[in-house]
């Protein structure tokens, strides 16, 4: 299948200006999401997945700042792209929630506790002119709750967030985010705060919505099981960089980067039998003083001299499979 990009990120840098120093949270990230696919960003806590996702609509909270990079959004297939970096606040606002929507990690805190579910769905639609008034929005909210398979939507629409269970809240959040028919849904660990059984239901819902509404999803997770289940293509992030990107089957069958390999050995692999789960030695680096060269080199079992000095190039090993590692540069004689 040919890739029709919906969003394209080129050479993104994001820094956080904290009292302790400048945290180089995102360091030259490039990727592209194709229309209709589910693209996954995986990596451990603090590797920059969420910041990358928020950067897509410049939603990085202060003291974070996007230093440079190009973010291209293609509203129509094959159409002219919009550079998100050049938009005004008001133009961005119009894109957020109507073209590109978010679902965040914790549904318990995503909704305002003082307003009903219906009201919050209605104001989201009202903000983008989907409905003429809040009242009309509340009427339409019932259909939206039906769409996200909320039990008893007529009652739920009048409920306050605290009257709903965690799973129902996340359904309400997903409904709110989809209320303006967005083209891209960014789901930032949408099930991490939920019970395991509810996680499955939410993932089933996302799959169904994606099929029914031809949605493109950017899924952020640290759960490799979820990656195998949901994703078409996967990017593995480590310390603010994408270290490997591949088709989901390719990644699980033929991981190349030592970090990806270690990561897959650390979790039960859904495709292969793993004898013993291993942890990755060492800890995530401090990104105020990131290690020079390859950021993974202090923990890498295959570390070479060059890894300590120079940033590894991105190497396309196969079509659609790229890896940022010196091991593969050498093999190809570069």
């Amino acid at each position: 299948m040919e890739c029709q990009p919906i969003i394209e990120v080129k050479d993104l840098y994001v820094n956080f200006y904290t009292y302790a120093g400048i945290v180089k949270a995102i360091d030259g990230v490039s990727f592209k999401i194709c229309r209709g696919e589910t693209y996954c960003l995986v990596g451990e806590t603090g590797c920059g997945k969420s910041v990358t996702a928020r950067s897509l609509t410049r939603l990085v909270p202060p003291p974070g700042r996007i230093e440079k990079g190009v973010i291209l959004y293609y509203p129509e297939p094959g159409g002219k792209p919009i550079n998100i970096m050049e938009l005004s606040e008001e133009e961005l606002r119009k894109i957020r929630g109507s073209e590109i929507s978010y679902v965040f990690q914790d549904p318990n805190t995503s909704l305002d506790p003082l307003y009903t579910i219906g009201y919050q769905i209605a104001e989201t639609m009202h903000a983008h002119g989907t409905v003429a008034s809040i009242k009309e929005g509340i009427r339409k909210a019932v259909h939206i709750l039906k769409m996200v398979l909320m039990p008893d939507p007529e009652t739920r629409v009048k409920n306050y967030p605290h009257e709903l269970s965690g799973g129902m809240k996340q359904r309400a959040v997903i409904g709110t985010s989809l209320s303006n028919n967005p083209k891209l849904l960014i789901a930032d660990e949408p099930t991490t705060a939920l019970d395991a059984t509810v996680q499955d239901q939410i993932m089933d819902l996302l799959r169904k919505l994606r099929r029914d509404r031809n949605l493109t999803i950017l899924l952020i997770t640290h759960n490799m099981g979820l990656v195998a289940e949901m994703c078409d293509r996967v990017a593995v992030m480590y310390a603010g960089r994408i270290v490997e990107e591949a088709d989901v089957y390719e990644l699980f069958n033929n991981p190349l980067h030592p970090y990806t390999k270690a990561l897959l050995r650390a979790v039960p692999n859904p495709l292969k039998r793993v004898e013993k789960l291993e942890s990755i030695p060492g800890t995530v680096p401090n990104l105020i003083y990131p290690p020079p060269g390859c950021r993974f080199h202090p923990r890498c079992p295959m570390v070479m001299e060059i890894c300590r000095e120079k940033r590894p190039p991105e190497i396309n090993v196969k079509p659609g499979h790229r890896v940022a590692c010196w091991l593969y540069a050498e093999k190809r004689g570069e």
Partner: peptide, 24 residues
């Protein structure tokens, strides 16, 4: 609060976000 970030992500207008903040 997280709901303010989500309100921004939903594309609500500034004034409306302030209303949520004020009431809370």
């Amino acid at each position: 609060a997280d709901f303010v970030e989500y309100a921004k992500a939903r594309g609500l207008k500034k004034l409306r976000i302030y209303r949520h903040v004020l009431r809370n």
